[in-house]
Every structure is written in structure tokens, then in C-alpha cells.
Amino acid sequence: MVKKLLIIGVIFAMLIAAAAYYYVFIYSVKHHRDVNNESAISITSTDLTKAFLDNEQAANQKYLNQAIQVTGAVLDITYDQSHQKTVLIGSETEISNVFITLKDTSVSFKIGDTILVKAICNGFLSDIVLVDGVVKH
């Protein structure tokens, strides 16, 4: 009886270890956060910029690490050093705008277009920086 319990215990421990290994080293590598699966805060690029310029700490509490659906005019389109497409949206008259690195480039757009992008807010440098952006239209 004791032997049986010992064997069941060892098997159980091995299963837990295997599940933990799978979650940490396999599942977590293959599954990254996907903004498409999250509900987002809708805001214009002008209002988002104003929020960070007015009070960065308060804006961080509200928007940092959140999924945001931001609308604005395209000011610039570039590629970063990892060849990911980036877009700057906002207004040419503003000192700061919204800088987004895109993960999905299936929707085409050009400078001057008004676009809606769903992305994750990383914070504020010289612009408000968003990542993993998906252009909705």
C-alpha cells in the first residue's frame, strides 16, 4: 500500500514538474500578449498627447500597459532598426505625438490619412510610445 502511494506520489510530482516546465519554457515562448484579444480605451492622438503633457504621472496610471485604440493623422512612416514598420500620428503643430511600432501591416495607409490603431502603451519619451500596433482602418 505504501509502495503504491509512493509511486502515485512520484508520478504526480513528475506531472506537476512537466506542466510547470511546459508553461515556463514552451507555452510562454509561443504565446505572447495579443492586443487583438483585449478591450481597449478609445482616444484621439491629440487627447492622449495632452494627457501625458499635462500630467505624465496621472497619464501613466491611466494608460501605461493598457490596450489603447487611438485615432490620428499620419505624420510619418518609417522602419526601425529591426525593420518593423513604425507610424507617427498626431498633429504637426504639437511638440509631442504618438509613435507606434506596428506588428500587423496588412492595412495600407499613407501620410495624411487618418487611421485608427489598436496598440499597447509603453509610456512617454519625446512622444507617447505604443507597441504591437494593429491598424484597424
Binding site: Y23, V24, F25, S28, N122, G123, V131
Partner: peptide, 15 residues
């Protein structure tokens, strides 16, 4: 130089 901490991307999401 300025960098946002959340801008550091790991291969492993848990990490």
C-alpha cells in the same frame, strides 16, 4: 538616451 522599461521585449512572455 531614454528608454521605456516596458519596451524591452523578451522571447519569453513570462520572463
Amino acid at each position: 538616451f531614454g528608454a521605456l522599461i516596458k519596451g524591452f521585449k523578451f522571447e519569453n512572455q513570462l520572463m
